[in-house]
């Protein structure tokens, strides 16, 4: 495909795994994305950063085909996601793992069965083999000993690791992580960061991480995209992002409250709002 002129990151000469092009998406009449462009190269850890409400979760839903863009193109592993039939979409999703912001473990199954769930749903493997695979995945995230616990009995960090084990149960091509670092103590954080990196490099997966934690993002990313105002406002390696002079990027990377990036959700004039009593 003739994609020369495009910002092919760092001269890697392979086909991108994910391309998002000119995507527009709005919800309840409010534009969340317009002209969104980004590329995820295979085998790399791509981090998408943005403030709360910037549309990070929405972006993952678009890539996973749970939402359909109003315009533009989303390609994953060569397939045009919005145009897929439900059946084709499900076939593609078997090759995608996703870690939800809330873990999304099935509460009526224990840890073991949660990890076994995708295998039982999608394969006809004998029980012995499923057992071995589940234990392997749980060993990877350090929770082999917790396999008989139920999700309600897990801490937030443990639940996230179980969800990770489940996300990689079928050895997917890529894993999407929605805020994998929030609400973790420093040790669990370190464990998760290392785990994501190891999975990416050892198992040859591609990782897309969505987060607002600048430090972790920089420590793990190969590529960083910064979302702001419904589009990519900056893009580069962690080093490039940190020494950029662009004010909006600097503001985000340094966590400054004042700057070009608005902290407020769009609203009418503050004074006018205060004076118009009686209308919420």
């Amino acid at each position: 495909m003739g994609r020369r002129g495009q910002e092919e990151a760092h001269g890697v000469d392979r086909e991108p795994l994910i391309t998002v092009r000119d995507v527009a998406f709005s919800r309840d009449g409010r534009a969340i994305f317009h002209d969104l462009d980004l590329t995820v190269m295979p085998g790399r850890v791509t981090v998408v950063m943005g403030g709360s409400g910037a549309g990070k979760t929405t972006l993952l839903s678009l890539i996973g085909g749970r939402l359909v863009p109003d315009a533009g193109e989303i390609r994953v592993a060569g397939e045009n996601v919005p145009a897929l039939s439900r059946r084709q979409l499900f076939a593609l999703r078997r090759r995608m793992g996703m870690l939800f912001q809330s873990s999304a473990l099935l509460t009526d199954l224990d840890v073991y069965e949660n990890v076994a769930f995708p295998m039982r749903e999608h394969t006809r493997l004998p029980e012995r083999l499923i057992r071995d695979l589940v234990l392997m995945k749980l060993e990877l995230v350090g929770l082999r000993g917790a396999r008989r616990l139920y999700p309600a009995e897990l801490s937030g960090g443990m639940a996230r690791r179980v969800a990770l084990a489940r996300a990689i149960a079928l050895d997917p091509l890529m894993v999407m992580y929605d805020e994998p670092f929030t609400g973790l103590d420093p040790i669990s954080m370190g464990v998760i960061v290392k785990l994501i990196r190891d999975l990416n490099d050892a198992l040859g997966m591609t990782s897309i991480i969505v987060t607002h934690d600048v430090a972790e993002a920089c420590s793990i990313a190969d590529d960083i995209y910064l979302l702001d105002n419904g589009r990519v406002s900056a893009h580069g390696t962690p080093a490039e992002m940190q020494k950029t002079t662009e004010p909006a990027v600097r503001q985000f990377m340094a966590g400054l409250p004042d700057g070009p990036v608005a902290f407020h959700y769009p609203a009418r004039d503050y004074l006018a709002d205060l004076q118009s009593a009686g209308h919420a």
Partner: peptide
């Protein structure tokens, strides 16, 4: 509410 249904969708389970 706990995204279990969405999680299934993403695991290609209807």
């Amino acid at each position: 509410a706990t995204e279990q249904l969405a999680g299934m969708e993403m695991m290609a389970v209807d």
